[in-house]
Design a protein around this nucleic acid. Structure first.
Length: 256
DNA sequence: ATGGTGGGCAACCCA
């Protein structure tokens, strides 16, 4: 089973890319972020033609998440339980015998802003929820646009992107480490230890051409799935296509 | 330090 996470930055614009990429790579499960579509506009029929069922939680203009799968999606949950949030950032479902959580983590803008405080509050709520979820569902995958680069290997300029910068600050990385402490592992780092492999490049200043990127799109696998995670990576190709998302898909392969 | 680009949507907000 191959599971991928992709921030498409508007599914309306990126549907042709998603269709091409599904044809090319045929993943079993896909989590999408930043669909920016109200639910009545979600292209579920077009995706069904490619063999994917879909569940989604969207809104106009901002945010929006979805899960696609070849198998049925059961026990669908939208949002974090007992955490009031207008923003559509979370969708979870059971696919086969794996519980899959798809997150669009708050960006946070800059340290000291209201958005940064919201990001840390939001991550704390996710932590509390996942602590329960992993008990209910030991076979757990948590994927998404985390808007956190785990360590210095995951940023093009570790001096700039350090303790005091958004996406790499101490408090953000602490929040990510607290998720790891639940028994969740960054699948990419189970199979790759090199620096300079990124999932996001700024549209500006020739970010992709100069490989000025960050690895902020992650797939975490639980202890119970760790031995089954046989490969992982980031598919840079769609980022090179015309009018791309600024993110590339991050994927993990689970045996059986 | 600033601003560059892109999406949504029609003036700025968000990333």
């Amino acid at each position: 089973m191959r599971i991928a996470s992709w921030n498409v930055n508007s599914l309306n614009v990126r549907l042709p890319h998603l269709q091409q990429w599904l044809r090319d790579t045929a993943p079993d499960v896909v989590g999408l972020q930043e669909t920016k579509l109200e639910d009545q506009r979600f292209p579920d029929t077009a995706l069904a033609e490619l063999g994917y069922r879909s569940v989604f939680a969207g809104q106009k203009t901002y945010n929006g998440v979805a899960l696609l799968a070849r198998q049925p999606l059961a026990d669908v949950q939208v949002g974090i339980p007992d955490f009031a949030d207008e923003q559509k950032r979370v969708i979870a479902a059971t696919i086969g015998d794996v519980r899959v959580v798809n997150l669009y983590v708050v960006n946070g803008q800059d340290l000291g802003t209201d958005k940064y405080a919201y990001k840390l509050r939001w991550l704390e709520a996710v932590h509390g929820w996942l602590a329960d979820e992993i008990q209910r569902h030991p076979r757990l995958v948590v994927m998404g646009d985390f808007n956190i680069a785990p360590d210095e290997r995951d940023v093009f300029d570790p001096v700039k992107w350090g303790d005091q910068h958004i996406l790499t600050s101490l408090a953000e990385r602490d929040a990510l480490r607290r998720l790891y402490a639940l028994g969740l592992h960054d699948a990419f780092r189970l199979h790759n230890d090199e620096a300079g492999i990124y999932s996001w490049w700024d549209y500006r200043m020739g970010g992709l051409r100069r490989n000025l990127g960050l690895r902020i799109d992650l797939t975490l696998v639980s202890d119970a799935l760790r031995a089954e995670a046989s490969a992982s990576g980031i598919d840079r190709e769609p980022r090179t296509w015309e009018r791309p998302s600024d993110h590339a898909p991050a994927w993990v392969k689970l045996e059986r």
